[in-house]
Each structure stands twice: as structure tokens, then as C-alpha cells.
Design a protein around this nucleic acid. Structure first.
Lengths: 66, 66
DNA sequence: ATTTTATGTCACATATATATGTCATTAACA
DNA sequence: TGTTAATGACATATATATGTGACATAAAAT
């Protein structure tokens, strides 16, 4: 799991809006949020920058119990 | 740029040894260290774990002037 | 000298991330 | 109502990450 959806929603962005900001298709954001695949490092960095956070926060050992 | 080579050398590992530990080909490590492409998130996480560090340290806004 | 080891690179093959178009469903809203 | 926006999902196409095998060079070890 990752925290892309959480950070996207906190910014009031739709999947489509975030996709446009980072230059990918809406489906790509959808698949990443639903852990359907394994994004590239560059895309992870773009997402972190666009969402005002960093790689560890979005993708490093997300604790689902908290 | 990233700090994979630096952390690998600090651990006394060859590209081949690190490649075996994370389950990719030696060429893949070589290309990543030389910024010839854009690894997947899962591979970045494996590298960070194997090198005893985290995503931000290896891949987030590496300052080349320091 | 000669044999390993480590690294960079190339060519080709394969797996998969990503794009594009589409459809269904739900919620918000006119 | 109907219409639009948001999301999940599918099928197909393309770009690219990664694998595999090979070769060259340099350094280290024997």
C-alpha cells in the first residue's frame, strides 16, 4: 500500500487532475492507488513533489494499522 | 543522480553481489548507478532495504555539491 | 605472465509500465 | 429527472525496464 490517495484527497485533487499535473493518464493514477502496479521512480518523485511530500512518506513501509 | 553506488561500496558489495541480493541482473544495477534509466518502485525499495537505508536517502533530491 | 574479478557497454528478447479508448456505476448537481 | 464528474475496470497498443549473452578493459590476485 501507499499513501497517494490520502495525499491527493487532502489536496482536493481528482485522479484526473493529479494525472494531468504529473503528466500521466488517469488510469495510471488509479492503478497506483489500488496497488495494481509498480510505478517508475521518476513518477514516484513527480507524485511526491506534486503532493508536497517525499518518497518515504508516500511509499516507504506504510503502516496500515495506524 | 542517486546514491546507490556510494551505499553499495560502503557495504563492500560488487554490482554483481548487490544484483543477486535484490534479484536483478548486474546490468540493471550498472544502468541505475549510471542514471541510464528509471527503476521501478519495488526495485528501489529492495535496494534501500538491502543497503540498510531508505528511499529518500538513496533517491530523493541528491545534492551533488556536498 | 596469467587468471580472476569488477565494471561498462552492446544487441536482442521479454515482461510490464503506461497510453488510449471505452463502458459501468455512483454521487453531486442542475 | 437528466447531466456531469469521479472512479473502477477492461482491451489493445506502445514504450521502456529488465534479462541474457557476449565482449572489452582495467585492476587485483595467483
Amino acid at each position: 500500500m501507499n499513501r497517494v490517495r490520502e495525499y491527493r484527497k487532502n489536496r482536493g485533487l481528482s485522479q484526473f487532475a493529479l494525472a494531468e499535473k504529473v503528466g500521466v493518464a488517469r488510469q495510471t493514477i488509479n492503478l497506483i492507488e489500488n496497488d495494481k502496479y509498480n510505478p517508475s521512480l521518476k513518477l514516484c518523485i513527480s507524485l511526491a513533489e506534486e503532493l508536497g511530500t517525499d518518497l518515504n512518506t508516500l511509499f516507504w513501509k506504510v503502516d496500515e494499522t495506524q
